[in-house]
Amino acid sequence: MRVHNDSGRRLELILEPYGSDHWLMPGETFVVVTDGSPAEPFQVDCAAGSMTVHVHGGMGWVEDTDGNEVECAHQRPPAAESGRRGGAFGRVVRRLRTGSS
């Protein structure tokens, strides 16, 4: 699922159930990917300045439009640092998805 920020501000994209945050700059596009194939793979909730994508039936991750994985905390503004988990969970998901250790 492609997500494009056509606003004039940074947009927070939260991927659940992982709680990972990925920040899109104005004009930027990310792609939310899942390895599951349910009839409804995503649920999207929007709020001012943020979008939450819930992945159903499989693992999910975020890529740029070239297919490169976008890490948790990508372009996170300093004011959003407190209370965040960081990128460790994203690394665990990537290892599970790729089978690497």
Rank of each mutant, 00 (worst) to 15 (best):
V3R: 02
V3C: 04
H4G: 04
N5D: 07
S7M: 10
S7C: 11
G8T: 12
R10A: 12
R10T: 11
R10L: 11
R10Q: 06
L11C: 06
L11D: 02
E12P: 00
L13T: 10
L13M: 08
L13A: 07
Y18Q: 05
G19T: 04
H22Y: 11
H22I: 10
W23A: 09
M25K: 15
M25P: 00
P26M: 03
G27E: 12
G27P: 05
G27Y: 09
E28C: 09
T29K: 03
F30E: 01
F30R: 03
V31G: 03
V32S: 00
T34L: 04
T34G: 01
D35W: 09
G36Y: 14
S37E: 13
A39L: 11
E40C: 10
Q43W: 07
Q43L: 12
Q43G: 14
Q43D: 14
V44M: 11
V44E: 13
V44Q: 10
V44H: 04
A47S: 14
G49V: 05
V53K: 00
V53M: 03
H54K: 05
V55P: 00
H56I: 15
G57M: 03
G58K: 06
G58N: 06
M59T: 01
G60Q: 01
W61H: 03
V62T: 08
E63T: 13
E63A: 08
D64A: 08
D64G: 04
G67C: 07
G67M: 05
E69V: 15
V70M: 10
V70F: 05
V70W: 00
A73R: 05
H74T: 12
Q75M: 13
R76Q: 13
P77H: 03
A79K: 05
A79N: 06
A80Q: 12
G83I: 02
G83D: 10
R84L: 12
R84H: 11
R85V: 14
G87L: 07
A88P: 00
A88G: 07
F89G: 05
F89D: 02
G90N: 09
G90V: 06
G90H: 10
V93H: 07
R95T: 06
L96M: 15
R97W: 01
T98C: 02
G99D: 05
G99H: 02
S100H: 05
